[in-house]
Design a binder for these strands. Structure first.
Lengths: 324, 324
DNA sequence: TTTAAAATTGAAATCCATTTCAGATTATAA
DNA sequence: TTATAATCTGAAATGGATTTCAATTTTAAA
């Protein structure tokens, strides 16, 4: 069943049938004739033929470091919920935090497989920037700020700052910090900077050896807690860059009979389900991950609609989550 | 840049260029001439034109109920890790547990958008079966067993059975069960059946009112725990269909000063990170979710390679995870 | 009633590759 | 050396839509 057959059955030209589906000029009678034939035959235009002709695939490439992660899962959920409502579909690529893969996909999408790209980023190297520049379709970056690109990200700095301030106001004097790699500007560098600045602004001595760097897993948080405790002497508070790390940290403290929050108060960031499950629950920060995914799609849609993309950079708010 | 231009530059016919890319008959000289031009121009054949001609999209439709879920996230991770290695890409559709959406996508993929479908299923209605039958591309179902279809699923029954047996062997005599909806054959019905059969086989009275049905969230597990406690009288063990529910249950018990495991021993299923984070950690069952995703792709690849699909049904093993 | 503007129409060109076909070359076996 | 098989080749058909163009019909304004 193709457009020619439908045209013949309806007694019109192929162009008319095409117009029928694309709201072109077409008289009532023909419209009705075509509608009838289409209904009877169940005809649907071939997506591939349309794509070949129009150069629009109606697909968005979504690149994520991993998918089995609370925060990223929520971003993806947000992206897809909005995409659901549109005519676009999502081509998902997982890089497994392998920069080579990330670049691969970025350029795979390059040859016009997709109409646009949403890049959920952790580390952005100069290589990334090079490829992004060469990308022929619009792109929106989620989770990181990159000057010159449309991006939606979180106020990591102030969130971490406020969290730290809260700890100090609660009387915690000696804080340790569990950080992500610094190459991750948002989750690594910014959150750590927020911590340090808060400590300094609150009048405490600015230490440079009160933190450890861990990777995004419970196990890693667990493993590095010992080192952090040693580095800090006897901290009475530990702030972590993510809930996942914090959960690992809690696990270590529990096993070593260190009382939380009595001896050490622990905070994570991300407001994941994990934060509510540890005993006691983690103090944490809520970042609007779903929302960032949703907004990313909206921005991309504006870019695709060739509107002059009013939104360029969107920084989302946050709020502290405290359990008593 | 299209095939015609390349052909002209290389001084050959378009057919020759096509053969160059598709390993057809072609002489060394022409091959070399084309290689050079392709290299210089950076030409890549148009995927859409190829698709139109060959009817192969090199895309797999992946339908999941949600993505921000530990178990499903792991399945998707498995699916994508294998797909990564192939020439196929994943078109992801999230149904948000909305059956209408699920059917929508299933039939959206129907018109040849994809070469095959992987359906991560929870509830399979007769409507599903109707659409599955009408599907013109091969499909593999993950997480549920459906006779007549290629599927990969877990041994939910025996896992739940063994878990229950373990509880009884440990001296727990009065067990409560937190179940998922029974329409979900695998996670709802089978796991509950395993529980009941184990209780009976171990010589205990078969009760019919020692369980509650909850949805897949921590909050729901929390809310329904009270009811379960009331229904059971004073249980000394609670087995849950998922870790998520179990985490909610733990939260309730903690808040109500019920000691775990002293008064009540709690088990989840799924071996998620959550299970290791609660205090004490949950007894749980490890299901190979990543693996099921991987195998699903392998099965689909066999179906696509028009091999006669040796694998039809795959049931994966499990093992108990106990923390001491 | 004219005239200008708006709506309607279908033929044909276009998008870009793959594949069949029939013929031409080259290699191998007899 | 000849017959046969194995390679190689390009013209043309094919897949299924959209869009331009020029012509025609309707409608609205003057």
């Amino acid at each position: 069943m193709n457009i020619a057959e439908i045209a013949k059955l309806a007694g019109v030209s192929r162009a008319a049938v095409s117009r029928y589906f694309n709201d072109g000029y077409i008289s009532q009678q023909k419209r009705e004739a075509i509608r009838k034939v289409v209904e009877e035959t169940g005809y649907r235009p071939s997506v591939q033929a349309q794509t070949l002709r129009t150069k629009k695939t109606k697909m968005i490439g979504v690149i994520v470091p991993k998918v089995a992660s609370a925060s990223i899962g929520r971003i993806v959920e947000g992206v897809l919920s909005v995409l659901n409502e549109s005519e676009y579909q999502a081509l998902l690529a997982v890089t497994q935090n392998n920069p080579k893969r990330e670049l691969e996909y970025l350029s795979a999408f390059h040859d016009k497989q997709v109409d646009g790209v949403i890049l959920v980023a952790t580390v952005l190297t100069s290589e990334h920037k090079r490829i992004l520049k060469a990308l022929s379709v619009p792109v929106v970056i989620v989770g990181q700020r990159l000057t010159g690109y449309c991006c939606v990200f979180h106020d990591d700095y102030h969130a971490s700052y406020d969290l730290t301030k809260l700890f100090i106001e609660k009387g915690r004097k000696k804080l340790g910090y569990m950080s992500a790699i610094q190459q991750d500007k948002a989750v690594g560098a910014e959150r750590y900077r927020g911590f340090r600045d808060a400590v300094r602004d609150m009048g405490y001595e600015e230490l440079t050896d009160n933190f450890v760097i861990v990777s995004f897993s419970v196990a890693s948080g667990y493993e590095k807690t010992k080192e952090l405790l040693e580095k800090c002497g006897n901290p009475d508070g530990i702030i972590c860059a993510t809930d996942t790390m914090a959960a690992g940290c809690m696990q270590y403290l529990r096993e070593h009979k260190i009382e939380v929050p009595k001896q050490i108060l622990v905070a994570g960031q991300g407001d994941s389900e994990m934060a509510r499950i540890t005993d006691p629950p983690l103090t944490t920060v809520h970042y609007s991950y779903e929302k960032s995914g949703q907004i990313a799609v909206q921005m991309l849609m504006e870019l695709l609609g060739q509107g002059e993309a009013a939104l360029k950079e969107v920084k989302l708010g946050y709020h502290l989550v405290e359990f008593n």
